[in-house]
Design a protein around this nucleic acid. Structure first.
Lengths: 112, 112
DNA sequence: AGTATATGAAACCATTTGGTTTCATGTCAA
DNA sequence: TTGACATGAAACCAAATGGTTTCATATACT
């Protein structure tokens, strides 16, 4: 009755938690690249890199395109906006004036 | 001969990967709170919450303060700046004009 | 002094994660 | 068509993760 498969998209926070995957995003920002070329830059097997690529793709952070016998990956930055939105909530804590006010307002809870 | 213990601070990306920990950060932004009060808001044991609090504290995202027999935790937003810096690199991909230019420049690689 | 409260440490456990090697499939080139 | 290349899937494995229960310790209350 609803959409057929609501796609269980893993969240972007999990996806970027791994340093290898962050390197992948950085590497695929400007050039689309096939798997073998990508994996040459990492000290692990091609299949290991391939699994990271899948995780990033599932999170929506990469787009894959088949060209002949190779699969090329490229950055899809849109899901990072969720991260940006999450982070923007904490902008207010970097404003020192506001921070001082907050601490003053709740100072009555600071017994002892 | 260097500093005594350079503290192996776990990275902030790992720390915020867990949704429970993100909730904790949100909860502790405005009020300092002791462990038992905090854990009342989560469907897990107090010790489980305590371990999350430790991870966040080790990552520098929380400050703990002993008050009598309780330990109170509060948000320490500074390490989020690393995340902000990381994210800012990708700002350029959200600028559609720049994105169009990039794709044009590398269009010679797009055979087929 | 003795009891209750607040917390962290420890030992333990199931699941997830990040890697491996092997195998199957599809495409390109001779 | 035959062989090499590019890739993903599968089975497997060790270590990390996120949770539990139990125990020890420090502080507060009567």
């Amino acid at each position: 009755m609803g959409q057929p498969s609501p796609e269980p998209r893993p969240d972007v926070f999990q996806a970027i938690a791994d340093p290898t995957r962050r390197q992948l995003l950085h590497m695929l920002g400007d050039h689309e690249m096939p798997v073998t070329a990508i994996s040459g830059h990492f000290p692990m097997s091609r299949t290991a890199v391939s699994k990271h690529l899948r995780i990033l793709t599932d999170a929506g952070l990469l787009k894959e395109r088949k060209v002949g016998r190779e699969t090329r990956y490229r950055l899809e930055p849109e899901p990072l906006l969720e991260l940006k939105r999450w982070l923007s909530y904490y902008e207010r804590y970097w404003d020192n004036k506001l921070l001082a006010l907050q601490r003053f307002v709740e100072s009555d809870q600071d017994e002892m």
